Amino acid sequence: MGGLFVAIGDSFTEGVGDWDVRHPNGVRGWADRVAKQLSKADPGSRYANLAIRSRRLAGVVEEQIGPALDLKPDLISFYAGGNDLLELRKDLGQLLQAYTEAVERLVSSGARVLLFTGFDVPLHPVLEPFKRRNWVFNEHVRQIARQYPDSVTLVDYWAWDAYGDRRMWDIDKLHMNRAGHRYMAIQILNILGVRHQLEFEPFGPSERVGLVQSVHRDVEWLRQWVLPMFGRRIRGVTLGDELQPKWPEPIRPADGMKKMYRRRRRPLHEN
């Protein structure tokens, strides 16, 4: 009884931006929320999440696809390549080929595969070149989804107007915040045709920001997030280097995810 949902990828799937110390790695995210609702529909359902922030496509392929397929999932979500797109020296053709081969491997397992486009994030002009790479990547993802209509379900969130509101994004402007992750979970459950109890409360009127305040925010954003990000890339380090997957072994979300995490941490505090 109960199917197995396995999520693989990078920070998008790990849940970065939806900060919650009651969950592994300090984040919750859309995948945990989807798994919880799947468990309400079927208490026997299981869930694993192997995603780790900052992972590039090669890392996801090498570290996560094999272990994920060994679990024999019924549903597997795959979001990777976004970190590669932020490297202009990375050959886009090679990236698309590697992505295609990864999807073919997932499809051959017989699992239902969730693929995602990346949102057209309203970026500062300094990052504009990355948007064009994202457009090409997204169209490639759509083509693959059309190629495997019986195996692939596309989550085309590039087209969702709701994410045009900056209040769906964390302070770094690259990751969804709690509201964004919650909305993503709702949309995925709707696409899968799963009845759920999640609701999204519309935002009120947007806050008007003056020119001086807008410039100040951009300067702080560049200083606190963009420059450190590229600094890490130059040094060859990432925010995920010291992290382990949130849920490396299948769990039953119906048993309580926060409760399971507390039990997992308890020995650390007792030693």
Rank of each mutant, 00 (worst) to 15 (best):
R105N: 14
Q143L: 13
L4G: 07
Y261F: 12
R33M: 15
A102Y: 02
N134L: 07
D218W: 15
P129N: 08
V155K: 01
E199L: 14
L106E: 08
N134V: 11
I234P: 03
G59Y: 09
N134P: 05
Q213K: 11
R112S: 14
A31W: 12
A179G: 02
F119E: 03
Y183G: 02
L127I: 04
R46A: 01
L222V: 11
E104H: 05
G210Q: 10
D255S: 00
R217K: 13
G164F: 11
R208E: 14
R105P: 10
W169P: 00
P245E: 12
I144N: 07
R33H: 05
G256V: 07
Q244W: 01
S45H: 10
E220N: 12
D84L: 04
S108N: 06
K173I: 01
R235G: 06
I171N: 02
R233Y: 13
V219D: 06
G256R: 02
K246S: 10
I65D: 02
A35M: 12
P250K: 04
G164S: 03
L106R: 02
K258P: 05
R264A: 14
W169L: 08
Q244H: 14
I171L: 09
E101K: 10
R208V: 15
A48M: 04
R132V: 14
I8E: 00
L38K: 03
N134Q: 15
L88A: 10
